[in-house]
Design a protein around this nucleic acid. Sequence first.
DNA 1: TTTTCACGCAAGCAAGCACTTACTTAAGTA
DNA 2: TACTTAAGTAAGTGCTTGCTTGCGTGAAAA
Lengths: 192, 192
Amino acid sequence: MEKLSARDRIIEAAYKLFSERGYHGTTTREIARAASVSEVTLFRIFGTKEALFEEVLKAKSIIPDLVAMLNELDHRELKDLLYSLAKKIYSTLVAKKRFIMITLSEVNQYSEKVINVYQKLINEIDDLLVKIFSKHRDNNRTADLKIVAMGFRGMIFDLFLTNEILLRKNISTMELEHVLSSYVGMVLNSIK
Amino acid sequence: MEKLSARDRIIEAAYKLFSERGYHGTTTREIARAASVSEVTLFRIFGTKEALFEEVLKAKSIIPDLVAMLNELDHRELKDLLYSLAKKIYSTLVAKKRFIMITLSEVNQYSEKVINVYQKLINEIDDLLVKIFSKHRDNNRTADLKIVAMGFRGMIFDLFLTNEILLRKNISTMELEHVLSSYVGMVLNSIK
DNA sequence: TTTTCACGCAAGCAAGCACTTACTTAAGTA
DNA sequence: TACTTAAGTAAGTGCTTGCTTGCGTGAAAA
């Protein structure tokens, strides 16, 4: 905490406060105070509260993390591959929990442009899953792979949302692993 | 719209505005104006903005709808039963979209008490699903029915969230039915 | 008819908000 | 040493916010 520049301290503080109280629920005074910086400095660096908000989103977005993750896959057996993918997605979501909270509370005010970014990301995840599935599918099964992919992604995301955001529950690593591998099992049943 | 009392018109207007701009992003002046009521009347009836907010949540909560829905099930074949349940859940979510939006944007400020209400509701849905599954399960399958239930609920909720809230997409009835029946298929594969 | 009631209108209040100005200070850098 | 840079302090600007007060009015109830 001590080595960070004023700019970074402000971003960290704003990130935390925006995620807890929303954009309109957070004041620039509070942010400055939490960053141990004068309010004047905040405005000198960022100009407006809006601009600060955008910088926070840029700095903390989950999207680069997820995109990077998608490119880090090895070529194991299908079951292990899906399981490790599920775990990586879940842990990325947890690591970016505050970003998700901001997104949820501000989602209805996003522009077409921002929404397209999410649209693309979701498609990218689903397409990757379809590609993985189709390599291993049983050809006399007629399951629609795109829908299986949506379902798989949906189960993981909802698990995160329900436990981490809505119920604030401490799900144990063991239980998490059990649930995720069961989800993988459901998917495998549907494509083989 | 014309026959509503001042009180109801205020609640309707507040519901709409809170869902679009969040609690802090909505002013009592705007609400009064949208309700064609003077701001004074708003405060005479509700006392404070906070109290109005709580009345809106009470009046518009999705919880009674879902609870009522759970008690309206007939006893058809498993596949049809799950499918009609999925459709009912989805359409209830759509009908209460604004309530969900408010919930998402205010979720991190809810008290233990409010969170317990959601906890109970989620458990109720999952338990119902488990009950349905276990009547029809294949006994030599060892799938954990609770987890299958969580997955099923998760797929449905994520479908709603992604399409209706995040991407604001008009998913056609046909496509929705196709996706939901595929989800039902995934579940059936896992328990039989 | 008189009283009550539900509401509107005009005005305002204290506090808080994002943001600014003017000036200062301390630590590098040329 | 002179100058730049990054930060702070103190004060304040104009505007908005939640909420209040006082007074008026038309319609229904008594």
